[in-house]
Design a protein around this nucleic acid. Structure first.
Lengths: 156, 156
DNA sequence: TTTGAAATGAGTGAAGC
DNA sequence: GCTTCACTCATTTCAAA
């Protein structure tokens, strides 16, 4: 592992370890060890270094929202009255559990959010009863995702 | 666990298990067992059922792209000549590793993608040399994320 | 950075309530 | 659906190369 300008460079074994764990966070270290041909203890130590470098920010179980009845995903562009209102608006958006992502963006809107609802009615309620009521929000534009065709992490 | 209309409903213990593993996929089952007060084997059995129900779609290590030098995230709205071109365009987008998400959306564009690049120059190259060259792509609109303020999964 | 060995702790499956 | 028990396997640490 090499660090230049706060950018980490990793070698092929680290990449192999990460690729395996990015696919399945519970894959046993020993199994990876057998695959890449070094001892489990070595992998263990490499992982500690990767964590210390900040490259690994954790691990997550992925739940399938559709099985819980959440099948409407949408992007919403939000216009704010003044740029000033941003931190306050984000604080309010945090409180809405349906909001999965929130980006401060260049271009048309001040904020772009990704939201996940059960159905269109649920989406409408969140929009009209929650988002539109946030102080500073003047207008919104909604784009419903009819189908998500790609969903992945950075490739290593 | 109850299943109605293909929608799964889970009880408080399942929620507790999922919440723990969504936060840290490698958290030992026995540790969760001690927290929620039932045996490890019982948790193990519940997890098998949750997997079988399709609620759990796997687990992932999360890498921090900034540490690898990827610090420019953007959303790009893509206009396609004809709706027909969609499957072909998606196939081409699949081949571009910088593309993390791809949604077929209602509204202005045919497609909305999320993309992660090292810097603005890298983003410009992907746009001009890859995306604009895809057959059927007529125009694009780019929104750079200056700051991602929320990033989470569905709340359980 | 790697290794092997040793100790602790976790995952798994069967049987019984 | 939970429990306990027995077994196997993984994780973690450490000293040494």
């Amino acid at each position: 592992m090499k660090i230049t300008n706060n950018i980490v460079e990793i070698d092929g074994i680290d990449k192999e370890i990460l690729r395996n764990l990015m696919e399945d966070a519970r894959k046993p270290i020993l199994e990876i060890a057998r695959k890449v041909g070094i001892s489990g203890a070595a992998i263990h130590q490499r992982l500690r270094k990767l964590e210390a470098s900040g490259l690994i920010s954790g691990s997550k179980f992925i739940v399938n929202p559709k099985v819980l009845g959440y099948s409407t995903m949408a992007f919403i562009g939000i216009f704010l009255d003044k740029a000033m209102s941003n931190p306050k608006a984000v604080k309010e958006l945090q409180k809405i559990p349906e909001v999965l992502e929130c980006h401060y963006t260049t271009g048309n809107w001040s904020i772009l959010i990704k939201i996940l609802c059960k159905d269109n009615e649920h989406l409408m309620n969140v929009l009209n009863k929650k988002i539109q009521h946030i102080e500073g929000v003047s207008r919104t534009e909604t784009f419903i995702s009819l189908n998500q065709q790609i969903d992945r992490q950075i490739s290593i």
